[in-house]
Write a protein that binds this DNA or RNA. Structure first.
Lengths: 136, 136
DNA sequence: TGTTACTTTGCAATCATTACAAAGATGAAA
DNA sequence: TTTCATCTTTGTAATGATTGCAAAGTAACA
């Protein structure tokens, strides 16, 4: 994952005006790296920014996705999660504790059969199971 | 994908009473193999079964998933799709025409780094891009 | 025929997401 | 500093997918 010293600058470079809300939302995604939902981002930041509306969280995340600085995680059908790490990596969700873990894999290892002459833009690898901590 | 001669029998073997609705819904998934949404299943079957309610489609699909005879496809965050093929295979969605294609890949090729001592239950590989037909 | 258990249906309720218009903030020009 | 234009945020209403639930329907069987 890329290193960012100044989030305001980083947003500007990506053609996003760094408002207080946007900086805090990106900071949350970038530092916590916990693949949050809209709900949990809003719940977490409402203390710091008491006027923060859920609409702003939705708008901001949509903008971040469009500018390519975050990605959507669809590992579960009833929740949309977000990730500030846009590098190639997979996601594991523990069906017991619900935590979403990152893991690494090499894209080039996967031999795909049946997509000749298809243009590939994004690859998502999702795994579900029981995490190490929940196996006790 | 497994071959099924008699859908009613197949449902019974999987501890599902083969009502007309259930047989038709499974038949649709199994024969069309087009990864439909609830909406499109309902729209397609309403002519054959004019009283079919959307709740029944939801209930039936949920039951099929619980019994393990279909799987959920979460390639897009705003639509849940269903697949009667539960063997290991990937899904490609064309961002132009919206068609979801199946493709094959070998699970054992993927070298995963970071999930030592995790129990893996399900693996989903989703790819988005432009399909062969839309490249013109 | 009556009973029981299971299934389907229709509608209401819920939850996530989007649309939209009003209010607020920012920054440049006068 | 004031004004103006532009962009952002906010709150509420609207939409759309999904679930809850109670009533009606169905099928097997005593």
């Amino acid at each position: 994952m890329i290193e960012i010293k100044n989030i305001g600058e980083y947003l500007k470079v990506n053609k996003i005006m760094p408002s207080v809300q946007r900086v805090k939302i990106f900071e949350y995604l970038y530092t916590k790296r916990n693949h949050p939902t809209v709900e949990s981002i809003h719940k977490e930041l409402i203390d710091e920014i008491p006027t923060l509306s859920k609409t702003t969280v939705y708008n901001t995340l949509k903008q971040f996705v469009e500018k390519g600085i975050i990605q959507i995680i669809n590992i579960e059908d009833n929740e949309t999660r977000y990730d500030a790490d846009t590098s190639t990596h997979g996601h594991f969700k523990c069906i017991k504790c619900g935590i979403v873990y990152d893991f690494l894999f090499d894209n080039s290892d996967i031999k795909i059969n049946g997509l000749d002459n298809f243009d590939i833009h994004q690859t998502h690898l999702y795994i579900k199971g029981i995490c190490k901590n929940c196996k006790n």
